[in-house]
Design a protein around this nucleic acid. Structure first.
Lengths: 142, 142
DNA sequence: AGTATTTTTGAAAACGATTTTCATTCTTAG
DNA sequence: CTAAGAATGAAAATCGTTTTCAAAAATACT
């Protein structure tokens, strides 16, 4: 349970017969360093600053690996780009998205989750995942 | 309050100095006829069956107009394509999306909405819009 | 160690959806 | 009816994402 993201990733690579490379280490380190929700492009630029030789395609492929092994989840907030978010354990959170400045606030509310399950049950629907996003204006932008 | 979508659209065009064209009428009629959540491509194909001379670009531009004047809202359910949904008055609904067969069930729950407002309030956030989607398996696909 | 096997890499090309361009056609106001 | 402006559709451009492919790197096997 105390497995770090690095360990989880390394074990995943091993279990799939994939190889550890310096690029993958670098990309993971940089991904964990930023606590935002980077797109492939954004993470690529950040990685590039320190390691100009890492290519966009590698960042893209590595982010997909992160999602596969569960240390990242895929998000998109309607701006047309896919974003990756670092996942901590099995906790789930939703988002407040400011349409003016792009600020993203995370929140969690058990009561909402419970009501969601209730609604799904009414439709005999088995929920695997969900997303809840509130769009509007943050404190500063109002 | 009894304005039909057609009327709302026509008034919007007028107010913006835009013109009424047969294509726009056709596209709106077809859009209202389908109670799904068509993508540009899908609506284009449907329109095309009856009116082969209507172009993809026009469907695309017209759907954007629908969104602008409020008779449609933009959605995307993570499959990479943008979908447009007919909006009835100011009622809001959320979605259950089946990841197996693509079925989309709409639902509405006031209690969830109220909790959302509460959470937003706690962050001094002014909510303009929101989206809630539950992904999983529908009754048939389980 | 050295060699073989397999995966990974990065640049560039391919891709799919969306958006724009531009010459022509259509609407509407005068 | 005419002139001015907007809309159209086909094709091209664009944007983010994904794939291709030859070269490089990592692991497995003597």
């Amino acid at each position: 349970m105390s497995d770090s993201k690095q360990e989880i990733f390394r074990e995943y690579l091993l279990s799939q017969g994939l190889k550890s490379t310096s690029q993958r280490e670098i990309i993971l380190a940089e991904f964990l360093r930023c606590d935002e929700h980077p797109s492939t492009e954004e993470l690529y630029l950040r990685v590039r600053k320190k390691n100009p030789q890492v290519g966009y395609a590698t960042v893209h492929r590595t982010l997909k690996l992160f999602a596969e092994c569960g240390i990242a989840s895929v998000r998109n907030f309607g701006d047309g780009t896919t974003r990756y978010e670092s996942v901590s354990g099995d906790e789930h959170h939703d988002h407040l998205v400011c349409q003016s400045c792009g600020l993203i606030i995370e929140f969690e509310d058990d009561r909402i989750e419970k009501l969601q399950d209730k609604v799904a049950g009414q439709h005999n629907f088995k929920v695997v995942d969900h997303r809840l996003e509130l769009y509007g204006l943050c404190e500063k932008c109002q």
